[in-house]
Every structure is written in structure tokens, then in C-alpha cells.
Design a protein around this nucleic acid. Structure first.
Length: 577
RNA sequence: GCAUCGAUGGUCUAGUGGCAUGACUUUGGCCUUCCAAGCCAAUAGCCCGGGUUCAAUUCCCGGUCGAUGCACCA
């Protein structure tokens, strides 16, 4: 019936369509676009929201991880704790000869300077002067050393007293709200929270359109689990879910990915635990549901040298793009307690959950109780500190030694007594581990557009069509009068209204020949089109046309809301009509 | 950020130191009983800034954006 034709540069075609039909535009074109930023046009914004809502259906509604919303501007302390201020600011310089960018501290380290990363830019520049460029060998002359941090910096309030950063990921907001979240979830593990929102990274050289943006949308879930209980309570839902995994071993031996069930992947130790496996499967499920081509999706495990030192296991969902190759779109990591520990250290708060024991436990503890009646007058200001030090000291036969301000003081036995007491232990403070699935929504959206895009020959004409899942498509239904007269238009308009009341986004169009109107909708991926013709006036039926097959069936107008709603939800297939 | 190449209505494109092509799209009208039909009309463009010149969309310089290579990508 139709032949799919070979396409040239699919990226060009997809982006041309996306621009022309209002999916994605270069930002602020009237002043000259800025690389790394895009505007979502009317259809793009609609489609993006549909993708986000699909994500919410999986993570918020199904998993029960509630969504929070934090500021995109955060104070410096957050990112000092997270490691972004230090870990993301590299001292760099450029070789004046070959123009190679160099990590200034690396060059200095290579020539025998230890701890070069901690030196100031001036000191580093002085050190580098006269050293050979590792790229071209020319001697560096007074190289300009500058900080490059991928975070956008800003100041909070007038006079720029307080430094702030645009968040480089949404995750930190969930971590900084941890203690509130623990109470919200009534002190029980596991629990999770999610956030969908903008993040910012001042990429040195953003290329590749929507793939590498300076402002982008992330959907992140942080799932807090007991460190010793990494069995997902609902693991059975995905235990038998089979999908191809490209583990470390497969990559090192250059063998293809292996098809395994999640149950086996965990049993074989390929995936670290049930939680990670569960979200690998859920992500696979979600991406296919969003319109990603299963053949162009793989899950790749981070190699030991690319995995962060604290991560127990880390996988990327990579989506194949004709233009960009394999693109990391989702990261799924077991981050252990790294983030919570870092914030606990920086903020001084605990970042733990109190887990009660099933039964109260009793422990016998020895404690040293100072005789403050004597210690107080004798040591005055230092008495309290001495008593505290005594409490944890290990006394000898004659007495105990404590060290205060570097001075070792001997406290004779007579000034304290050792008591043995029974303590009730009702539970312990546990610092949860974090399982983090992190999605790049813009990349996902681009991948869905690219994978959905098709050109085919229909009766000598090229038909461009986006085969988007019905609930991802920006517009769900188009409504046409066959002729723009004889009352057909009024009927079509009233159908549009009826569908709107059922919260179905229907677009009315009476302009131009009917075939042209079908093509217009094909191009933006509208899955269904309702046409009012002369039979409608006789028997109250209309045709419903399926985008992918271009087949039509007649239905009574009264059935439309229910039938279309089921078709869009995917509970009914068109070929079942 | 460096190097090379490019930028003409919404889209694709012709062309030029002197009134800027054509097609498609869009809008209006006529026509039209289901897949970009036809006819008439309309709307709409030389990326931005500076220089050379009587005159610059065209030549020169700088910038922006895009493509490619290098570098970067916790």
C-alpha cells in the first residue's frame, strides 16, 4: 500500500518539521538565537507535557513517589555540599601555540607539583610558565589560567552579597528536603520523591540541537532505601521482564548485549540489586510506551572508570539516533549514601531515619560519671569538658587520662565512679541509600520525534507522518467537515465541543481539500481524524480515520467520546473497531 | 573556545555591486461528496553590526547561529 522511502539526513528533516510546525524553535530568534537554548512551540510544549505526564503515571501514580518542586536557584552551600562547586570548577588554560585547552592543574601535577588543584589561578599560572605544552611541546609563556565551572553563577539579593547557582540537576532539592520528606512519609523506608524541572549547565560548546542544552528539563526520582534491604517490594512486577543488557563484561569482551530477565540479572550479579533492576525494567517499559523504538534502545552499564567512586552500580539507557549515535538519555544509579552523607556533613543535620527494632533491645553500658562537686571547683571553666572527655575515656587502675586543649590531665579514681547501666535501645538511625533514575526529557522528546518520523510514498506524493503514541501526540483528534457548507461544518464544530468536554484535545479544520487536512494532521502526529460527511446528516454517523493505516470506520457520533478516549488511552485498538 | 564551510519569504531554492527568482506552504475567494486536485488573488525574504562604494543581499572586517573536525562533556 505504501512504501517507506529512504530518508537523507533524518535530523534535518525532523528539525525542519519541528521548526515549521511549532514543536521546537531556536530561542529569541529576533535577537539572534543562543546556542544551547531552545523554545518549545505550541505543539512541542504540548507534547513535552504529555511525555512528562506519562512519566508521572509511572513514577508518581504507580510507584507512589510524590512530586516536589524546588527553586532552580540555590545557595552556594548546597553545591559546596554536593561537590559541584569544587568538582565542577576546573582550572584551565590554553596553549598560545597550538590552542589546545589544558587542565592547568594536570599539567602542573605532571611536572611534580602535588595538590595543584588547590592552588590559586595566579600561582598555577606562575608554575606553568616555562613548562612545555603536553600537546605541542612549545613552552607555555605566562598562560592565563581561568576557572571553568559548568554551573551558571548568580547572586542573590542586592549588592551580590550572597552567591547562588542555577541548579545543575534537580536531585539536590530532593536531598536538601530529605528531613522534611522523612516526616512526610512518616519515618518509614523505603520512600521516594521526584522532581521534574529545568536544570542548567553552562556547556563549553553545545552542539547537536536538543541533545546538548544549557537549559534542559530533567525528571529525577530519588528513592531512599534501607542499605541492607535492597529488595524492591514490588519486584515481582518486573522479575520476568526480559530486556537486553550491555554489562561491563560484554563491553570489555566486545560481545553483544545479553537478553535476560531482571530476576536472572540480579541472581547472576549482573545488576547490583533488585532496586536497580526494577528501574531498568521500568525505564525500558516507559521509553517504549513513550514511542522509543525498541530496536534503538539499549542499557549499558558504566565501566568501573566512568562510574563515580561512590556509586555501587550505574546504568545508562542509551537511545540510538541516526544523527548522533547512542545518546545517554536516562541514568539509573545506586548512589549509596553519598549525597545524604555529604549534606549531613555540610549542614550539621542528621539525614537519617530512625528505624525502630521489632523488640526493644537492652544493652549494658559502662559509663564514667564525674564527681562534679569536686571537679567543678577544681577545674572551673574546663570542668564540663573534662567530664565529657571522662565519659568516653578508658580508665586505668589508678585513674583516667583526658586531653583538653592539648594538655593531658590525670584524673584520679576518686573523682569519678564507673557505673554499669542497662540502656533501652528502641531502634537505630539509618542513613538510607539512594537509587536514582534520572531522565533527560528533552533528549527523550527528540528521540521520540526521530523514531516516529517517517516519509512514505502515497500515490506519487511524499507523506510525512509522525507515528507518535496517541497520548504523546500533541493533538489527539482532528475534526473535519467534508464540505464547508450544508451544515456539515456546524456538526463538526459541535463534535469538537463534545470532545473538548471529555477533555480530549480536538482540532477543528475546514480549510482546503480533505486530503490536505489529513496530511497536515499526519505531519504533527494526530492519531485520529473524524470526518463529517453527507451520510452524517442522514444517519448520525461519522468516519474515524487511523493515522497509521489511513483506514476509516463509521461510528455513531454518540460513540465518539467513549471510543476515542479508549483509543487514546490504548485500551482499544483501531483494528478492533 | 579554535579551524573550515555555510546563512535569500514559513519551507526548499534561483540570482545579483543598481526594481530579488520560482515552487511549495499559509490566508481569502471560486470550485470540489474522503487522502497535499484545479482556477483567481493576497501575505511574506537577502542573519546582525561596522567598513569600502554614488550605490552592498552581493566585496572586506567583526559578531550570531548552524554543520564538520579538534578540545570539552562531574
Amino acid at each position: 500500500m505504501s512504501i517507506v522511502i529512504r530518508m537523507g539526513d533524518i535530523y534535518e528533516s525532523v528539525m525542519e518539521l519541528a521548526k515549521r510546525r511549532g514543536f521546537v524553535w531556536p530561542t529569541s530568534e529576533c535577537y539572534g538565537a543562543v546556542a544551547g537554548f531552545v523554545d518549545y512551540g505550541p505543539l512541542g510544549a504540548m507534547m513535552k507535557r504529555n511525555v512528562e505526564n506519562l512519566w508521572r503515571r509511572f513514577y508518581v501514580i504507580r510507584e507512589g513517589y510524590y512530586e516536589i518542586e524546588c527553586p532552580t536557584v540555590g545557595s552556594e552551600s548546597i553545591y559546596i555540599a554536593s561537590g559541584h562547586v569544587k568538582g565542577f570548577a576546573d582550572k584551565m588554560c590554553q596553549c598560545p601555540q597550538c590552542r589546545e585547552y589544558l587542565r592547568a592543574d594536570h599539567v602542573a601535577e605532571a611536572h611534580g607539583t602535588n595538590g595543584a588543584a588547590c592552588l590559586s589561578a595566579e600561582d598555577l599560572a606562575a608554575l606553568l610558565h616555562g613548562l612545555p605544552c603536553p600537546a605541542c611541546g612549545e613552552l607555555l609563556e605566562n598562560p592565563a589560567v581561568f576557572d571553568f565551572n559548568l554551573m551558571f553563577e548568580t547572586s542573590i539579593g542586592p549588592g551580590s552579597q550572597r552567591k547562588g547557582y542555577l541548579r545543575p540537576e534537580t536531585a539536590q532539592g530532593i536531598f536538601t528536603d530529605f528531613n522534611r520528606l522523612v516526616r512526610f512519609y512518616r519515618n518509614r523506608l523505603p520512600f521516594g520523591a521526584v522532581q521534574i524541572g529545568k536544570s542548567y549547565r553552562n556547556e563549553i560548546s553545545p552542539r547537536q540541537g536538543m541533545i546538548r542544552l544549557r537549559e534542559f528539563t530533567q525528571a529525577e526520582a530519588e528513592i531512599f532505601v534501607h542499605p541492607d534491604q535492597k529488595e524492591h517490594p514490588n519486584f515481582s512486577a518486573y522479575a520476568d521482564y526480559a530486556m537486553p543488557l550491555l554489562g561491563i563484561e560484554q563491553q570489555q569482551k566486545s560481545t553483544p548485549s545479553i537478553l535476560v530477565t531482571m530476576k536472572d540479572a540480579v541472581a547472576q550479579g549482573l545488576v547490583a540489586n533488585e532496586y536497580v533492576a526494577y528501574y531498568l525494567a521500568l525505564t525500558h517499559d516507559l521509553l517504549l510506551r513513550a514511542g522509543v523504538d525498541a530496536e534503538k534502545l539499549r542499557f549499558r552499564q558504566h565501566l568501573p572508570d566512568e562510574r563515580a567512586h561512590y556509586a555501587e552500580d550505574c546504568w545508562d539507557a542509551e537511545i540510538f539516533s541516526e544523527r548522533f549515535g547512542w545518546v545517554e538519555t536516562v541514568g539509573i544509579a545506586d548512589r549509596t549514601d553519598y549525597d545524604l552523607r555529604a549534606h549531613a556533613k555540610e549542614s550539621g543535620e542528621s539525614f537519617t531515619v530512625f528505624i525502630p527494632f521489632d523488640e526493644v533491645r537492652y544493652e549494658t553500658r559502662r559509663r564514667i560519671v564525674a564527681d562534679m562537686g569536686v571537679l567543678g571547683p577544681q577545674y572551673r571553666g574546663r570542668a564540663k569538658r573534662i567530664a565529657d572527655a571522662l565519659a568516653v575515656a578508658t580508665p586505668g587502675n589508678e585513674g583516667a587520662e583526658v586531653t583538653i586543649d592539648g594538655e593531658t590531665i590525670f584524673i584520679p579514681k576518686s573523682l569519678y565512679r564507673e557505673v554499669e547501666e542497662q540502656v533501652e535501645i528502641r531502634g537505630i538511625e539509618v542513613r538510607p541509600h539512594v537509587i536514582e533514575p534520572s531522565y533527560g526529557i528533552d533528549r527523550m522528546l527528540y528521540a521520540v520525534l526521530e523514531h516516529s518520523y517517517a516519509e512514505e510514498m502515497v500515490e506519487g506524493e511524499v507523506r510525512k507522518v509522525l507515528r507518535l503514541p496517541p497520548d504523546i501526540a500533541p493533538v489527539q483528534v482532528a475534526v473535519f467537515p467534508l464540505m464547508n457548507r450544508d451544515g456539515l461544518d456546524e456538526i463538526a464544530l459541535s463534535i469538537t465541543g463534545i470532545l473538548a468536554e471529555r477533555a480530549i484535545l480536538a482540532q477543528y479544520d475546514d480549510s482546503g481539500a480533505i486530503g490536505r487536512r489529513y496530511r497536515r494532521q499526519d505531519e504533527i502526529g494526530t492519531p485520529f481524524a473524524v470526518t463529517v460527511d453527507y451520510d452524517t446528516r442522514e444517519d448520525g454517523t461519522v468516519t474515524v480515520r487511523d493515522r497509521d493505516t489511513m483506514r476509516q470506520v463509521r461510528l455513531p457520533i454518540g460513540d465518539l467520546p467513549e471510543t476515542l478516549a479508549s483509543l487514546i488511552a490504548g485500551t482499544l485498538r483501531f483494528d478492533q473497531l
